[in-house]
């Protein structure tokens, strides 16, 4: 156990908030797609990776200023997610579940390997944006702009998301489709449109997460989506897969857990990535349906 002074502790809290936010943004995509298609989108971590590279290229090759580059990257990532669903998943929607699962795994490998081919295997450095890299002092606590930016952007994005899901007609249709396709159709809901919107939102959030990730941990490689993808899938399961609030809670549990584990017990820092799995096993033993999950019957 390490004894910390207060400013150091606060710094860790800020770091935990940042990492938790990033995990939450990525975990939501897993949970929303699962909620509507009962599909674990194994390619979601790779969509995250693409978001980071799109932003990187928009700034470096196309020399766009960040405030244009980021929206462009988000739009491209959204389109990519929608296209992925359209061509890799939709044709298999009425096939046995295992087929679409395998398609997702295949899509993941394909994107990663195309990434290595096109982007190259060498790490790239995400451009530094001066505005967000200033160091702020709050009392005796020093924090970087990015560390403040991440939780704030995440909070805003989450508020908008929850508004859409809970207060709009489209959100209502999304919730209806996730329970009963046929009944939703009978209300006049176009299920394909709702699925497209779901993939769009999930991919958009992954892109926001990826850009923020790039600013905080500015090293890009084509496999960078692998570990965060896996952890955020775990975060979604911990929170209760299918439940958006659960994904947020799961993301923050992992974010805080990882940072605090390393901060308080530096000897265990090598086990940082194992933390998610330990929590997963514990949650599955205590409450298999996850923190927010209801024990539901498998949809047929």
């Amino acid at each position: 156990m390490t004894i910390m002074d207060f400013p150091t502790f606060m710094q860790q809290v800020v770091n935990s908030l940042s990492l938790g936010s990033l995990y939450a943004l990525l975990a939501i995509g897993y949970t929303m797609v699962y909620g509507i298609l009962r599909l674990i989108n194994f390619a979601h971590g790779d969509i995250f990776m693409l978001g980071a590279y799109f932003a990187f290229y928009a700034i470096t090759i196309f020399t766009l200023p960040w405030y244009l580059a980021f929206p462009v990257a988000i739009i491209f990532t959204v389109l990519f997610g929608i296209i992925l669903e359209r061509f890799a998943y939709r044709p298999l929607r009425n096939s046995p579940r295992i087929a679409i699962m395998i398609s997702a795994i295949g899509a993941s490998y394909l994107i990663e390997n195309l990434g290595v081919m096109i982007f190259g295997g060498r790490p790239e450095a995400f451009p530094t944006i001066q505005l967000f890299n200033q160091i702020f002092s709050i009392g005796s606590v020093k924090v970087s702009g990015v560390s403040l930016l991440i939780p704030i952007v995440t909070l805003v994005v989450l508020l908008v998301l929850f508004y859409v899901i809970n207060k709009t007609k489209t959100g209502m249709a999304m919730r209806a489709v996730s329970k009963d396709y046929e009944a939703a159709r009978l209300m006049g809901v176009d299920v394909n449109t709702i699925i497209t919107i779901t993939f769009g939102i999930g991919s958009g959030l992954a892109a926001v997460g990826a850009i923020l990730w790039g600013m905080k941990y500015p090293q890009l490689i084509p496999l960078m989506g692998l570990m965060p993808g896996l952890k955020c899938f775990i975060a979604a399961v911990i929170g209760g897969i299918g439940d958006v609030r659960g994904a947020v809670i799961g993301g923050f549990i992992l974010g805080f857990g990882e940072i605090m584990l390393v901060a308080f017990i530096p000897d265990l820092s090598g086990y940082r990535d194992a933390f998610a799995f330990v929590v997963l096993i514990l949650v599955l033993l205590i409450k298999p349906s996850g923190i927010m999950g209801k024990a539901t019957v498998e949809k047929v």
Binding site: K169, M172, A173, R175, A176, K179, D180, E182, A183, A184, L186, M187, G188, V189
Partner: peptide
């Protein structure tokens, strides 16, 4: 409009939301 066999209301949605969905189009 079809009222399907076995009710098929959306269990997690409120009564009011179910009614609103009826007017979706």
């Amino acid at each position: 409009i079809l009222t399907p066999e076995g009710r098929r209301v959306f269990p997690d949605l409120t009564v009011d939301e179910n009614i609103a969905l009826g007017a979706y189009t």
